[in-house]
Simulated assay, not measured.
Amino acid sequence: MFEMALSLWRSRTASSTLHLFANTLRGFSSEVTNSSAQKTREIMMNQMMYSDINSRIGSCMPLSAMRIGTIIHNIELNPGQGGKLVRAAGTSAKILKEPTSAYCLIQMPSGVKKLIDSRCRATVGVVSNPSHGDRKLRKAGHSRWLGRRPVVRGVAMNAVDHPHGGGRGKSKSSGKFGQVSRTPWGKPTKSGYKTGPLKRRR
């Protein structure tokens, strides 16, 4: 149990707390397992909509129960699905308009405004550890501890391994002068090449 909690803590950027339950967790798990999916969803929705939760930092409640200007994080995309948005260290979102019975307008950390179902839940407050981005890695081994493997440049590879590979010395082309930058699978990556989905025509 301790090793599992330690590995979970290492994989997260924000500070984590471990909560241990004696009989409550076991009873809740057995109730979910024995009931059908539809009944489980109804139980969860009733708990979300009618639970008496104070609007304090760390409280989790549906978006419909919050007010305009509330700072939130760990937002669900679908009711009862679990938090999917705004979970990185030091991030937060903001409710821009008073939530209605259908949707709630939220401003994401990137500035994008998103309409989310008002039945979805979120946590009040900002994710902890805001100085995560200011941390400096003291040596290369520290990066390996975090699970990040080295990145090798394509021009340093052989021609069989990458389109940029091959050539003599510090060759900036792969045998052909003026060839555009490509991915390891041969697709162009620069020069205005469109990599995203095509825009729908009107």
Rank of each mutant, 00 (worst) to 15 (best):
A122F: 03
Q107E: 15
G125V: 03
P130D: 00
I43H: 04
R41E: 14
V152K: 07
I72M: 06
G141R: 11
Q107Y: 01
H73G: 09
P130S: 01
T91D: 12
A102Q: 13
S55G: 05
I95G: 00
K97W: 04
K97H: 13
H73Y: 07
R41Q: 13
L137M: 03
N129E: 11
G167S: 09
S64P: 08
M44W: 06
G82Y: 00
H164T: 04
N74M: 15
T123D: 01
S173A: 08
A159H: 11
C60W: 03
L137P: 01
K113T: 10
A102P: 01
A122W: 02
P163L: 04
G133N: 05
V112L: 08
R121K: 08
T123L: 02
K136Y: 03
M157P: 00
G111T: 01
G69S: 07
G90V: 04
R41V: 11
L85M: 14
V124H: 09
M48A: 14
A89H: 00
V32A: 12
R144V: 09
A88D: 11
G154K: 00
K94V: 14
M48E: 09
S35H: 13
R67G: 06
G175W: 10
N74I: 14
D134M: 11
A65P: 06
A88Q: 14
T33D: 13
T123W: 02
M49V: 09
A122N: 01
D134A: 14
G141E: 11
Q81L: 07
A102I: 15
G175M: 02
I106M: 08
A140L: 07
V155P: 08
V32F: 07
K39Y: 10
M108D: 02
S55D: 09
G82W: 00
L85K: 03
V32N: 08
T91F: 10
H162Q: 05
R149H: 14
G169F: 02
I72D: 07
G154M: 04
V152E: 09
N74W: 13
L77K: 12
R41L: 12
Y50R: 09
I68T: 12
G133W: 10
I95M: 01
I75K: 03
K94W: 05
S64N: 12
V124R: 14
H164A: 12
Q47C: 10
V112N: 06
I57Q: 14
G82L: 00
K176F: 07
Y50C: 08
K136R: 15
K176W: 03
N46G: 10
R41M: 11
M45I: 08
G147P: 01
R56E: 15
G141V: 13
H142Q: 10
V126N: 12
L85D: 02
A65N: 15
M44H: 06
T100N: 06
V127E: 05
Q38R: 13
G90M: 03
Y103P: 03
S64Y: 13
K136I: 15
L63Y: 02
S171C: 11
A88M: 12
G58N: 06
K97P: 01
R119G: 05
A37Q: 12
P79G: 05
N54H: 13
K139C: 15
V127G: 05
